[in-house]
Computed example of a mutant assay.
Amino acid sequence: MPVQIRPAQTFDAAFAAPLIQATIGAIGRALTGTETDEDASHVLTEFFPLRGHRLSFTHTLIAEAGGQPAGLLVAYPGDLAPDLDALFRDHRRTRGLPPVTEPEGQPGELYLDTLAVIPAQRGQGLGTALLEAAAQRAAARGLDRLGLLVEEGNSAARLYGRQGFRAAGVRVVAGRSYTHLVLPLDANGPRRP
């Protein structure tokens, strides 16, 4: 089945927000100041159509298979990470919580905040297509690497390894430990070791 990658639109919120939250879990709960994935997903559904934050439709690509949304990628320049959390800091403040968030992206990289494919479409090449689209976005922005965080035991780590991502350190976000993976890029795409 052919895969099409397209920019997300505001109407994609009902598809994207629950998939994002299912993927980012503890980080989504920390950003939204909620205790359950369901509550975090509701907040993300409200925020997705808004501009200027890390999980906005403006930073999201949708992968379609058979004309239906089947996966997504949220990516933004790591340099912007602190500024892209202002909406979440304000939201946390309105909930009486400390307005503190933990930026994930690093300067110089296109940070892949979320890469997710619905279970029924996994193993069909959608993740690879989204990673290729991310490499193109990075090149268009003059960035020379992709970066992401992966939690130990995440099955997507195999995909990242096959694509050439390599460990570049460990970070703690929302009380959990993640490996920071990077994929160097050149003008022709990923630089293979």
Rank of each mutant, 00 (worst) to 15 (best):
P2A: 14
A8P: 10
A8M: 05
Q9P: 00
A13H: 15
A14D: 13
F15S: 06
A16F: 05
Q21T: 05
G25Y: 01
I27R: 01
G28Q: 14
T34D: 07
E38I: 06
E38Q: 13
A40R: 06
S41F: 00
V43E: 05
V43H: 02
E46D: 14
E46L: 14
F47Y: 15
R51V: 08
R51A: 14
H53M: 10
L55K: 00
I62N: 07
A63C: 11
E64G: 08
P69V: 03
P69C: 05
P69E: 06
P69K: 07
A70L: 07
G71I: 08
G71K: 05
V74G: 01
A75G: 07
D79C: 00
L80T: 03
P82R: 08
D85C: 01
R89P: 08
R93M: 02
T94D: 11
R95Q: 15
G96T: 02
P98D: 14
T101K: 03
E102A: 13
E104T: 02
E104R: 07
G105S: 08
G108M: 05
E109T: 10
L110I: 02
L110V: 04
L110T: 02
L115A: 11
A116W: 06
I118Q: 15
G123A: 12
G125Q: 10
G127R: 06
T128F: 06
T128G: 15
Q136Y: 00
A138Q: 08
A139T: 14
A140G: 15
R141A: 15
G147D: 01
L148Q: 03
L149H: 14
E151D: 03
E151N: 07
E152C: 00
G153F: 13
N154W: 04
A157S: 15
Y160M: 10
G161F: 02
R162Y: 12
G164F: 11
R166M: 09
R166N: 04
G169P: 06
V172C: 08
Y178G: 00
Y178Q: 00
Y178K: 00
H180N: 02
L183Q: 15
L183V: 06
D186Y: 05
N188W: 05
P190M: 14
R191E: 09
R192S: 09
R192K: 13
P193H: 10
